[in-house]
Design a binder for these strands. Structure first.
Lengths: 197, 197
DNA sequence: GGACTAAACGGACTACGGTCCGATTAATAT
DNA sequence: ATATTAATCGGACCGTAGTCCGTTTAGTCC
């Protein structure tokens, strides 16, 4: 017994752990050198000195790799709006939390840039990843708390659409729009939606 | 002179016109038989009896092919909100036109389904295709007309995000949300945004 | 009709994400 | 130490979008 830290249903084999570490390190190096978009799965396997099959067993897909690279930041973000201090976390009014949620999300997207974009899965699973479902429920809950009368699920979907990484990054990186304008518009948007007639 | 209808800078060679017609017919057949997602460029070339290079010279990319298949419908949609009768076309108040625009767009997406999804180009050109720029300017104009005080460009972007085909089709096809709920939420959204504080 | 030219043709080729399966090896039991 | 087993490994393989370039051909001019 006790083959190591008794985490999860079964322990990870030592070679698997070694290769996972190698792959993550190689991925971060490649991204630092050439950017996220230039990272290919073949190139990663070669750089890490493992076979291509190993890369895909570990991460499932290119998207899965990117999600893994972001998983700690993503978990921290989730923790902040679920359990952290107000106004992002519980304790503040719904509107304030909605505003803070959008601001935090925009900051997160700007901070991680192309990596967030590359971590978006392709249709149709894009809207079914746990993180997306969590945001949906969170915004829906805050809308209901603010007395949103009509169709909170669909309204939450519409609001979250305004926070799509691809669109926001295009606005900032290509159109040259300052991130403050994005947060300002988000504040305006949710304020009018919850405070409207 | 007069090698045919003097349209455009230079006439199209007869074999080119013949192959384009063959390709479009074959594409529609394949889509009718197996669905949009099952259409491959190799399969299309074979079905049409032309080389693969010809397919790509004609349409540039798979996305370009899909856009071509939609071009007539798309042009009709644009004509309706730019020159057609109110409330979609000019003559109605800005808010009424905004509501009508979203309703028409949602109906268009539902009508053409997966074809719209497949006609979306990949980042970053997705937000730079002429149609997308036109919608952006249109919504921006209507917002300004309604006296939107703060940052119409970014607010227009946020509203248009709520009309993304991929998201709406997922809501309807996968989540089973009725299209009427989408149009109702759009109406609610834009009404509150332009009528807000 | 024949020569000329620019455009169109077509299929071999590349790049990349993702799959498969026989070979390998780490952990465990004896 | 050895046998056993189940997970892991690795690279050949596949499908598809997109590119390249030598060959063909439609249209034009004499």
């Amino acid at each position: 017994m006790l083959p190591g830290p008794l985490s999860g249903p079964v322990a990870e084999r030592s070679d698997a752990a070694r290769n996972r570490a190698r792959l993550l390190a190689a991925a971060q190096e490649l991204i630092a050198e050439c950017g996220v978009d230039a990272l290919t799965m073949d190139g990663l396997a070669e750089r890490a000195g493992v076979g291509k099959g190993t890369v895909f067993r570990r991460f499932g897909s290119r998207t899965g790799l990117m999600m893994t690279l972001l998983s700690e930041s993503e978990a921290a973000f989730q923790a902040r709006f679920m359990f952290g201090p107000p106004p992002l976390g519980p304790g503040a009014p719904g509107l304030a939390r909605l505003i803070a949620f959008g601001e935090a999300r925009i900051a997160y997207i700007m901070e991680h840039g192309d990596l967030v974009r590359a971590s978006e899965s392709t249709y149709p699973s894009r809207y079914e990843v746990p993180a997306a479902l969590l945001w949906q429920r969170h915004v829906e809950f805050l809308l209901a708390q603010e007395g949103m009368d009509a169709d909170p699920p669909v309204m939450a979907m519409a609001l979250i659409a305004a926070l799509e990484p691809e669109r926001l990054l295009h606005a900032v990186q290509v159109q040259g729009i300052a991130p403050e304008r994005l947060t300002g518009t988000w504040r305006e948007l949710v304020t009018r939606v919850v405070g409207g007639p």
